[in-house]
């Protein structure tokens, strides 16, 4: 239920846990709440990615007069006069059940153990269907690959209880950037021994450096057998891009200034590609990756 604004100006007032606060009409509730100091946990939310509303952890209660409803704050646009409860027993009861349900999927994940401690969840009644599973189906990897990387190499397959994240179904589209692993809250994607292995199988001898596939470096070849986690270049770029993953830099979403620094890293440029400019880099990577989506 979205109310039309009653005040002509864009600035509206909502009540957050009893305190009146002002914000812009249509702003997302989670952003407003966090900005004003409320603690709302999330698992499937990441700034810059399309909100998904799947984990339901950020659910809060919104009220207006006698009307009330539980909504996910990560995608709820606010309106004037809205009253929000972010941490009542009722709201926390939902969080407990979400944590309990997800604990059955990934019992050892530190993020879930911490949440369980915070909310006093000690056991789970939900059946564990696959003890080897770590994925909680938050979909961050899928969205980062679709929305940021633009490679569309990962997707949900199946449905319902059989739903899983299809990681190595479309290896031909994977650029090995590792953004999926980077955003995964439960370390369910094994970049080092699994994903890179697939990547190596695909490219064989003709191995491009993953940073060239990301478009961060001019077309260059890997000289370290894809052992990125032991590669000096990799470490340098990772450090330069802190606190974000290089792919966010590559896509101009964050730390854009770093991009030009990386491009000048001569150590990575093989002799025959020395004078690559922006245009030819794009050409070199064309066909290996789809253009980033326009998010």
């Amino acid at each position: 239920m979205i109310k039309n604004p009653t005040t002509p100006s864009d600035t509206i007032t909502i009540t957050l846990d009893g305190q009146p606060i002002t914000a812009k009409k249509g702003e997302i509730l989670l952003d407003v709440a966090r900005r004003n100091g409320a603690f709302i946990p999330t698992l499937c939310h990441l700034d810059g990615l399309t909100p998904y509303g799947a984990c339901r952890l950020c659910t809060v209660k919104v009220k207006h007069g006698s009307w009330s409803k539980f909504v996910t704050s990560c995608n709820y646009p606010i309106w004037d006069g809205l009253e929000v409860e972010t941490a009542t027993d009722e709201v926390n009861q939902n969080r407990k059940l979400v944590i309990e349900a997800l604990l059955s999927r990934a019992p050892k994940a530190p993020v879930l153990q911490n949440l369980a401690k915070t909310y006093g969840v000690t056991t789970t009644r939900f059946p564990n269907l696959d003890p080897a599973e770590k994925c909680i189906l938050c979909g961050l990897c899928v969205r980062v690959c679709d929305d940021v990387v633009g490679a569309h190499a990962i997707g949900f397959v199946g449905r319902g209880q059989d739903r899983r994240v299809g990681i190595h179904i479309n290896d031909a589209a994977c650029i090995g950037c590792g953004a999926c692993s980077y955003v995964c809250p439960t370390d369910a994607i094994d970049m080092e021994s699994v994903t890179v292995g697939h990547f190596r199988d695909r490219w064989g001898e003709d191995r491009p450096c993953r940073y060239s596939l990301m478009g961060l470096l001019p077309g260059s070849v890997c000289h370290n057998n894809y052992e990125c986690w032991r590669c000096e270049t990799d470490q340098t770029i990772m450090d330069l891009c802190q606190p974000v993953h290089p792919v966010f830099v590559a896509r101009g979403i964050d730390n854009a200034g770093v991009r030009s620094v990386i491009r000048k890293m001569s150590v990575m440029i093989p002799p025959d590609h020395e004078d690559c400019d922006d245009g030819s880099t794009d050409e070199a990577t064309a066909g290996q990756q789809s253009p980033p989506s326009d998010t």
Binding site: I154, G155, F156
Partner: peptide, 12 residues
């Protein structure tokens, strides 16, 4: 269309 999208639909 991305291959993955076709695959997802085919399994859904």
């Amino acid at each position: 269309m991305p291959f993955m999208q076709v695959f997802q639909v085919a399994t859904f």
